[in-house]
Nucleic acid binder design. Structure first.
Lengths: 343, 343
DNA sequence: TTAAAAAATGTAAGCGCTTACATTCAGCTC
DNA sequence: GAGCTGAATGTAAGCGCTTACATTTTTTAA
């Protein structure tokens, strides 16, 4: 009984086969389709696997099987709790299906995103998850050429042909704006993330305009400040709003983090929320309930979205469900940061 | 001139070689160490690569080169901002060095962690980042057997031989406890995460005992409630403390999230912080400053830790820096949640 | 001019796994 | 008990790339 091991390290399939006295094919079958192997043999092989501490070589497996069982995700940043949550659920669900997650972040930068997408595809990702629709056609072309199934998350637009799982950012924000307007606010301002390559932010801002128009207000008459993500930037933006448009009585922010910044700036400026000014957020992450006062915001089912994204991507990889879209529902969460307009 | 292509799709190295009239070796060299190839040949090959739209096959590359340029991390959960931050920095730094990140989470569950480690190693991780020292010897043995370089983060213990980048959880918590004791507190309670397989939590609790002993208090006389991670669980734990040990005047939590829960419970019970009771946290994440009142806590340089972890792991992969440890400094952040003991 | 050294390129042997196809061997049927 | 069937297992051919080593070509030096 000869031994294939070069005795120099990690056990290979051949070592296991040898140890268990079977062929490599049998070991491979044991691992990949156990039902095709006899009970005794299977036990013997599994013991060998354990005894030797065998783990399949990824490269070899990928090469021979022509797939990596690896799925990639490019998100703006994990430091945004919204994506951390979604990604967590995404990974859990992938894990449940035997897939692993490759991650990279774009820092809300389109160019960086493109780089990351290329890198991840080069790393053999079988499929990829991207946030929002906005990106250069080059990336989409590259992905198509490489035949890498792609799923969009966090955005949902029935008119877009790409598979997506998300929610209607525009309608959700419009709903919230309706509430704000319902409280008598006419001078609304918006603190937004840069909208240039971020359809989510853009749609949310448009949602406010929609609601204004519907309520007979001039949709053009909306102060919008764009600023990067962060509590501090939210503070600065708030001050800017109060300087540029002191008549403002409600500030709608496109996410909770900016809103918390606004809240903080308001306090520092001695303004009472919601008596002097109302503030709203978007996402409903933990800090929304922790803030003083608690934030009125739009609740987004991030975890569910992550889970669904994983399921959909897996379906797509299997070849089913091509071009399917899934819209999730959001929900307005009214809390103390929204009050009637002062007069 | 024969052609190797099976004409069924993606071009291979052989196709490029063929097209450019050189050997596969030359093409490979062109791509991996261009300086070893003549100028003319190089140009011809690069043109072929472009003309054919060639991209290397990941599996084959990994198999032949015996490395994937992929690094894995298993963290408890990305929903904990602490790990999200660290991981983000970790990924950024890896990216800067051309490595990609494979992620999985253990949900603070040792068994799950073991599974994930195996899965990631099977996915070809060249190295792996793990949180804390505590885990079964099996995992360490497996990792050793598979020769996968491993780095521990978030813990630092000079007596442990494994490469690690972290901070002294025990000393940091002892420092904070000293501050608490300095405020006259004698009846301290601790809300901890389960310590069974979490050396970070265990060490932090011990840190409190150390400080008590040093201050002449009985280290045994410390109410400790263990509870899973979460704001709600922190609330429940707080109530439990006040039931079991109503004489308590300071509650030290092993992380900020539990502390925020405690704060909330205190408010619900009509207790003033810090007048009636003091509360402290650990980590100094965003919610620490957002809480009402802001939390006294231990600031941990999560991002720096993530960045350093990436650097160290890369060094280790290169073969340098075997068995090195790196200790980072923490810092006490005194805020309003800590006050003098009531009398 | 020519031998030796250096540079450029080619040859081909793997890397460890999957899988189509071949073989073996019970358990049946007649 | 011959012949057949199907389950269990084995054999071996790749998968596409890297790289040690061999070979050819160019440069250098005497």
């Amino acid at each position: 009984m000869t031994n294939n091991t070069k005795d120099n390290g990690v056990p290979t399939l051949a070592d296991v086969a040898n140890y268990a006295n079977v062929s490599t094919a049998t070991v491979s079958r044991c691992l990949n389709s156990p039902e095709r192997v006899g009970g005794n043999t299977r036990k013997r092989v599994m013991k060998a696997v354990r005894d030797l501490g065998y783990a399949p070589n990824f490269g070899a497996q990928a090469l021979a099987a022509r797939q990596t069982n690896t799925v990639a995700a490019v998100i703006p940043t994990m430091e945004n709790a919204v994506f951390a949550r979604g990604l967590q659920a995404f990974q859990e669900e992938l894990g449940r299906h035997g897939k692993t997650l490759l991650v990279a972040s774009s820092a809300y930068n389109a160019e960086l995103e493109e780089q990351q997408v290329r890198a991840l595809v080069a790393r053999g990702a079988d499929g990829i998850l991207l946030i929002g629709y906005d990106r250069t056609p080059e990336i989409y072309e590259f992905l198509a050429k490489q035949k890498v199934p792609t799923l969009i998350a966090w955005s949902f637009n029935p008119e877009e042909p790409r598979p997506a799982v998300g929610f209607n950012n525009r309608a959700a924000m419009a709903d919230l704006a309706r509430q704000v307007i319902g409280q008598g606010h006419e001078n609304i301002a918006c603190i937004s993330a840069p909208t240039a390559s971020n359809d989510r932010a853009r749609e949310r801002v448009e949602g406010i305009r929609d609601a204004k128009a519907k309520a007979g207000q001039d949709p053009k008459n909306l102060t919008v400040i764009e600023t990067p993500y962060g509590i501090e930037t939210g503070e600065t933006a708030f001050r800017q709003v109060m300087t540029n448009a002191p008549q403002t009585t409600a500030i709608m922010c496109v996410n909770d983090v900016l809103a918390v910044g606004a809240l903080r700036a308001a306090r520092e400026m001695g303004m009472k929320v919601p008596n002097d000014i109302s503030v709203t957020g978007f996402d409903d992450i933990e800090i929304a309930t922790l803030a003083e006062p608690p934030l009125t915001t739009v609740h987004v089912p991030h975890r569910e979205m992550g889970r669904c994204a994983a399921d959909m991507l897996i379906q797509i990889l299997k070849g089913d469900l091509i071009g399917h879209n899934l819209e999730l529902a959001t929900e307005i969460r009214i809390r103390q940061s929204l009050g009637p307009a002062p007069h």
